[in-house]
Design a protein around this nucleic acid. Sequence first.
DNA 1: CGGAATCCGATAGGATACTG
DNA 2: CAGTATCCTATCGGATTCCG
Lengths: 114, 114
Amino acid sequence: MGNAPEGKSRGHTRASAAEGVERALKMLEGRWKLEILFHLFGGNVLRFSELDRAIPGVSQKMLIQQLRQLEAEGIVARTVYPEVPPRVEYRLTDWGQMLCPALDALLGWAAARP
Amino acid sequence: MGNAPEGKSRGHTRASAAEGVERALKMLEGRWKLEILFHLFGGNVLRFSELDRAIPGVSQKMLIQQLRQLEAEGIVARTVYPEVPPRVEYRLTDWGQMLCPALDALLGWAAARP
DNA sequence: CGGAATCCGATAGGATACTG
DNA sequence: CAGTATCCTATCGGATTCCG
């Protein structure tokens, strides 16, 4: 492709790397997603109402919206127990758990700010 | 604080880690920021017009806006040469360069999607 | 060349009320 | 309990025009 001065860790082109990271970031964008994720990291399993109470300021609409998006992306798993009253539990998928070190790298970078 | 099942890599509380990552992500949010960053990674130094041409679809307004935000956050450095016609160059700061491995971690995670 | 200023539509997110 | 549905606002981003 003309010029590739030197590769970054993998064999991506600048364009595809930008797109890939962009897609990854899009999955995490949203006012409440990170807060949800950090409550679920470590294998925690929480019900809708527990998340609602654990995250101050979130509305039910936003909470369910962000959860649904995380679920659609395969980061969060949703389990419905056919009981009455209804019980729904949220946890991270295996892949979702793998986000932790990546976010930690980002946190480390932010902490290194001059 | 009641319960701390087990810490993640560092000594952060869930709340502060979420906030920290949230701040980091906010710096990278914006339609064109990643594309800008990937053009500057590796020590590349580009003029405004070069970035403009290198990033198809971006308007001057958006380009300058995203550049200004990256500059304000200390990720990008802007150098003005008092010539005529004017010349302005953009490059990453040292700290900005350090973003690369963190984004690569994110890319690696995205690539591991089941 | 490297912007700034203005207008304008789309979307993200908040408040509130209602439901199976 | 775990959501829907509706309305409303603020911010984001695009298009265009003008300036030193």
